[in-house]
């Protein structure tokens, strides 16, 4: 791609720069060396553990793991959890970002604070807050009963809807920020123009706003999905032992049942899923992928 974009002059200059070694590059050595030792080697070892089969190398651990219907259920459960959380966060996050983009500076700042404060707050604190909210005599049930929607308190804690809304709410800021980033760049006149030309509001939204904000939405979807499938603290607090996700199984393989091969296998499946989501996000937004996660 760059070869097509770049012309001969730039290529020649780059080649010259590469030949003439830049001593500033040496400054990267400590951090690079540290990351190789503390991150690349450990991950490489995990890869080796996952792909080693009886002295050789192969995909035997993965095929054997996925052949068991119970394990396949864990993978499916993880993907389903990730997808539902992402769906809820996308709907809520899009509406929120849209309102934020159309508000005046003061209101915008207020709405920004209202997501940056929870975003910066410890995950354990938020998950604990949800635990209190979802209890059978917690606030959500009180509100539901007071408004007459239900008569008996619902078992929300340790239930899937409770877990999904709780997780979606905790990850929502990572959906709002990228969508807001693109929405606020859309010129308000564009909407006016589309409406003047006779487009209905829904038509305008579908044909003008949605396509223009798609990169932000897709980025948000990929980030939230990858964070939801790898979440550990939130499902641990909001569900019982019966709800198994890949990250819980991976952690238990080391902390409880001490089965490193199983742990490595599950970790690598999780890594592949999360990596695929982030890679997709990186392809869609030409921003540096890390930039979104403040």
């Amino acid at each position: 791609m760059t070869a097509i974009a770049g012309n001969a002059g730039i290529m020649a200059k780059r080649a010259a720069a590469r030949r003439r070694f830049d001593p500033l590059a040496l400054l990267a050595i400590p951090a690079a060396a540290y990351f190789v030792v503390a991150l690349v080697f450990p991950l490489g070892r995990l890869l080796l553990d996952g792909f080693s089969v009886g002295g050789g190398v192969g995909i035997g651990n993965f095929t054997r793991y996925l052949a068991d219907p119970y394990n396949l259920g864990v993978v499916w459960n993880t993907l389903r959890y990730g997808a539902l959380v992402t769906l809820v966060a996308a709907i809520g996050g899009y509406a929120y970002a849209y309102t934020m983009a159309r508000s005046g500076p003061k209101m915008q700042m207020l709405l920004l604070i209202a997501i940056v404060l929870p975003m910066t707050t410890s995950v354990i604190v938020k998950a604990f807050g949800w635990l209190v909210l979802l209890r059978s005599n917690g606030l959500v049930n009180h509100l539901l009963m007071a408004s007459g929607i239900v008569r008996e308190p619902l078992p929300l804690l340790f239930s899937q809807p409770g877990l999904i809304v709780g997780t979606a709410s905790i990850l929502l800021p990572y959906m709002v920020l990228p969508i807001f980033g693109v929405l606020r760049q859309i010129h308000p006149d564009l909407l006016g123009a589309a409406a003047t030309l006779g487009g209905s509001p829904i038509y305008c939204f579908r044909k003008v706003i949605l396509p223009l904000s798609l990169p932000g939405l897709i980025a948000g979807i990929c980030f939230v999905f990858s964070m939801a499938v790898s979440a550990y603290v939130i499902p641990s607090l909001l569900t019982g032992a019966g709800f198994k996700t890949l990250s819980k199984v991976a952690a238990d393989s080391y902390l409880v049942i001490l089965n490193p091969v199983r742990g490595a296998t599950v970790s690598l499946i999780l890594l592949a899923i999360a990596f695929a989501a982030v890679f997709l996000a990186g392809r869609v937004v030409n921003r540096k992928p890390g930039q979104m996660r403040a």
Partner: peptide, 21 residues
């Protein structure tokens, strides 16, 4: 590489470090 820990599952990082260290 340096930005990657922001996007990798924390549990996987922890497991890799446990074994690696």
């Amino acid at each position: 590489l340096i930005l990657s820990p922001l996007m990798l599952p924390g549990i996987v990082l922890g497991i890799a470090m446990l074994q690696g260290f």
